[in-house]
């Protein structure tokens, strides 16, 4: 079961990475053009989100009729409801970083394969940011 779940992970990662490469999301210049609504706005990347959300939603429709996932004991889908300061503050910090560089976590990680020093440096800083959050959250007892 564990090795099957890992195979699914590998296939899902491969599809995700291929989709990112095909979509144009891996190119920070394209992403910044998409975010530049006041300039020469390039709306094409909205179609990435539209296509991804539509197919992903089909998955949720299927799941709503399933008692448990095919290869695991239960679904682990976030159930928390409240819109907290951490949610909004974290999303805002993420958005500022995304807008400064044009990379979000998926395209940054997939981009490692191309070996560009700037992408490697971005991922190193991103991992440091994740670890910083873990240790500060642990220190504040959360």
């Amino acid at each position: 079961m564990d090795s099957l779940r890992s195979s699914v992970g590998l296939l899902a990662g491969l599809l995700f990475g291929f989709g990112l490469a095909l979509s144009g999301m891996m190119d920070p210049a394209r992403v910044l053009g998409f975010l530049d609504v006041a300039g020469a706005w390039d709306p094409s990347l909205a179609f990435v989100l539209a296509g991804a959300v539509a197919v992903s939603a089909l998955g949720y429709v299927l799941v709503s009729r399933m008692r448990k996932p095919v290869l695991a004991q239960r679904f682990e889908i976030p159930q928390s409801r409240p819109i907290t300061a951490s949610l909004i503050g974290g999303a805002a910090l993420f958005g500022i970083g995304w807008g400064l560089v044009g990379l979000c976590p998926g395209p940054a990680l997939a981009g490692l394969t191309l070996g560009l020093p700037q992408v490697i440096g971005f991922v190193a800083a991103m991992v440091a940011g994740m670890l910083l959050h873990r240790f500060t959250a642990a220190a504040s007892g959360k």
């Binding site: 599809l15 990112l20 979509s23 539509a54 998955g59 996932p69 095919v70 290869l71």
Partner: peptide, 20 residues
């Protein structure tokens, strides 16, 4: 862009339905 999004959505749906 749309085709890439469909691959990404397929990845998300597979991970959800099979691994939960």
């Amino acid at each position: 862009a749309l085709a890439g999004g469909i691959f990404i959505g397929t990845s998300a749906a597979l991970l959800l339905v099979l691994n939960g």
